[in-house]
Design a protein around this nucleic acid. Sequence first.
RNA 1: GGCGGAGUAGCUCAGCUGGUUAGAGCGGAGGAAUCAUAAUCCUUAGGUCGGGGGUUCAAAUCCCUCCUCCGCUACCA
Length: 572
Amino acid sequence: MARYLITSALPYINGIKHLGNLVGSQLPADLIARYLRARGHEVLFLCATDEHGTPAELAAAKAGQPVEAFCAQMHEVQAGIAAGFRLSFDHFGRSSSPQNRALTQHFAGKLAENGYIEEVSERQVFSIADNRFLPDRYIEGTCPNCGYDKARGDQCENCTKQLDPTDLIDPRSAISGSTDLEVRETKHLFLRQSALRGELQAWIDSKTDWPILTTSIAKKWLNDGDGLQDRGITRDLYWGVPVKKGDQDWPGMEGKVFYVWFDAPIEYIACAAEWAEANGKTDADWERWWRTDKGADDVTYLQFMGKDNVPFHTLSFPATQIGSQEPWKMVDYIKSFNYLNYDGGQFSTSQGRGIFMDQALSILPSDYWRWWLLSHAPESSDSEFTWENFQGSVNKDLADVLGNLVSRVTKFCRAKFGEVVPAGGQTGPREAELIAELTTRLRAYEGNMQAMEVRKAATELRAIWVAGNEYLQSAAPWTVIKTDPETAEAMVRLALNLIRLYAVVSRPFIPDAAQSMMDAMGCDDWSWPEDVGAALATLPAGHAFTVPDVTFRKITDEERAEWQTRFAGIRT
RNA sequence: GGCGGAGUAGCUCAGCUGGUUAGAGCGGAGGAAUCAUAAUCCUUAGGUCGGGGGUUCAAAUCCCUCCUCCGCUACCA
């Protein structure tokens, strides 16, 4: 029994996430959390909404709400959807929590104390009409290179040339369209990442088992040009953690807040404190997960995220932790994902393209999505969602292979022996062969899960399901019963136990279906099948069960066509 | 431009510390069975492993080069 701390990248607050976001962080994190719990490990699985920053302020303004109220409401919406997908967070926190405010200010204070903070005066574009400083990409204008009239201050989307806001011709605010802009002097705090480069480099170099996708991005940033750059960690915004040095004011920084990417990863820690508070626990209870001087030295910490989040998790946040010179638990393994595309293009939150989490749940139960998304997780490269593929995979794997197995076994038993586990007969070589195959495959499945090879784990699980059909087909109890009813009883007894075993091993992928399979077997024994033979004798002769409703219904061609049309456009 | 990822059967992918006739699932074809959500199981046909060159007894696998797609490129998050 080991201890695992698991965090998923924090979903941003300004809207409902799409399936690409889900499969890139929260869903695989949930899969692994559920698996490790099932194996008896102690798991703390945390996630939260990432609430600060310009987009949140703008989204709130658009909704005509104060930003605090908007975020509180969107947090509840996201929490509800997460529950709908059966994401088994031990706590779903908020980066705007009091705990995170205090901890973010604490880190800033420590970093300043240790000489890792520098005050820098910068000149930034200020929009008088909007009464706010504009981040580069919130400034639009005509590209000096190609003449495109909607170029952004950081880059022209048309010719991909990198720009500086002052390069733009006829610059205007992307928020209001106002051209009443001026350049103002403003002071900000910078995290001296350059001073921590050596330590970060050594730390990254020690992570030889990380995916190339993860380390290559980190190394690029460490070594590109002059090496790792210092990073501004404050902003001139209203909505954020007020800049303070611990609990002291920070002279000259009044009215400013920390940059969202500074406080968001700190929420991984603060979320544990929120978890403790919400569950009547003490500080020591969460610190044993996060402080290596208070019991966290035996914790394995796993992070899950899309590839766009990698630099912040391999560099900025570790720099924050190291620079504090306090014994914080650092990440042991970063599992990063590529992107899921939608019908030939990208999923896009800003453009409303693709399927969003609430829409997905409105048309099908979460298990359908969980299975498809996890078995097609974009691990080695970007992957593609198409309705045809979704319909085909779900119908075949879930309805035909697994669901129908449950159906044929329970209905056959009910018709021939009643709704109890039959008592007669003995198992023979055919059953021993099945047990051997299941054992081999189960050990492979466990290996894939431990290695967080999500697709391979799904493939193996499917093969485990198929083995049940192969067994039934060759055993053919419907034929055997005519001449040797006792043996047929033994076969059915084993098959009913197989359903319970499948519920246990499938639960990380399809928790609801697993629950209904277990319920139908009239059982609540979720112990992991270390010994397959023994596990297949769990339900004793005479044990009552029920024939469940259809476990997975099929997606019809008409439904597929309708959804394909409905979700082809842009969500408004 | 730089860095990284990908390019393998109709489709989705595995294999890639070099080694017997290149694998799986889906889809196609044929068959078996009829317990079951017309669901299952078996057999089978499909590939000059993006192009070209090189190293080697031997390359999908290593090296060089070219082509195509995708991502990142540091003040959106």
